[in-house]
Amino acid sequence: MLGYLIRRILAAIPVMGVVALVVFLLLRLTPGDPAAIIAGDLATPEQLERIRTSLGLNEPLHTQFFTWIWRILQGDFGVSLISQVSVIKMIGQRIEPTISIALSTITVAILIAVPLGVIAAWKHGTWIDRVVMSLSVLGFSVPVFVVGYVLIQIFAIEFRWLPVQGFRSITGGFGPFFERAILPTMALSFIYIALIARITRASMLEVLGEDYVRTARAKGIGEAGVLMRHALRNAAVPVITVIGTGFALLISGVVVTESVFNIPGIGRLTVDAVLARDYPVIQAMILLTSGLYVTVNLVIDLAYTLLDPRIRY
C-alpha cells in the first residue's frame, strides 16, 4: 500500500509538471508582447515595464520558468496585477462560498442520485427506471446556467420563496446561508445527479445479477437488506470513481453557477480575472484546480481498498 501510494504520488509529478508548463507557456506562446496582452491597448510604457518586471518577462524563457516554479513550490503565486493583493490572499478571501456550494452540491447529489440509481436498477425496465434515465439524459444536455435561470424564475421570481442571487456566510446564521445556497446547489447538482444516478444504476444492475445476491435473497433477507448491504456495497467502487472523475464537472459548474447567482467565490474571481486579464490569478486558479483534481482522484484510488478489501496494491 505504501509502495503504491509513493508510486501514485510520483506519477502525479509529471502530470502537474505538464500542467505547469501549459499554464506558463499559455501567455508566452500567445502572439505579441505578453505585457501588452495583459495590460491592453491603453497601457502606458511604465505600466508595461511594471508587468514585465512583475512577471520576470525580461529574463530568458527557461530562467522565467524555473524561477516561477520555485516560487510556486514555496506557495508564492504572485500578486494580482489589478488589485496588487497577493493571489493566495485573494483566493483565501473568496474560497468560503465556493467550498460551501461545492460541498452541499456533492452531498445533495449523492443523497439524491444514489437512491435514484438503486431504485432504477431495482425496478429495471419499469416506468420508474425510464423516468430516472430520461432525467439523467436531460442532466447532460441542459446547460447549468439554463437550469439556474429556470430555478430563479420559478422559485425566486414567480413564487418569491427564495432570494434571486447572492451569498451569506454560514457564520452569519444558518437561515440566511441556507436560503441563498438552495438554488445554486440545485442548479449545480443537476448534472452531478445525472452522472451518479446513471453509474449507480449500471453498477447495481451488474451486481444484482451476481450469485451472492441470489444467495442473500434465498436466505430470506429482506429486499432492503439485499439492496443496501449486499448489492450497493459491492456496486460502490464505480460510483466512487465517477464522483472523482466528475470533479472536473463540479469545477466548471462552479465557475458558471457563481456567475449566474452572483456568488463572490473563486469561480467568480476566475471569470473576473480572465475578463481583466489578471494573469497571475488565472495561472494560480488553473494550477490549484488541476492539483485538486489530481489529488481528489488519488484519494479516491486509495479509498478503493476501504470499499473493496479484495483490491490490494
Binding site: V19, V22, L26, S252, V255, T270, V274, L275, I286, T289
Partner: peptide, 16 residues
C-alpha cells in the same frame, strides 16, 4: 497533464 486542467478554465484563459 492537459486532461487534468478543467477544460472550461483552459478555454476561457486561451480566449482572454
Amino acid at each position: 497533464g492537459l486532461m487534468a486542467i478543467p477544460s472550461i478554465l483552459l478555454a476561457i484563459a486561451v480566449v482572454s
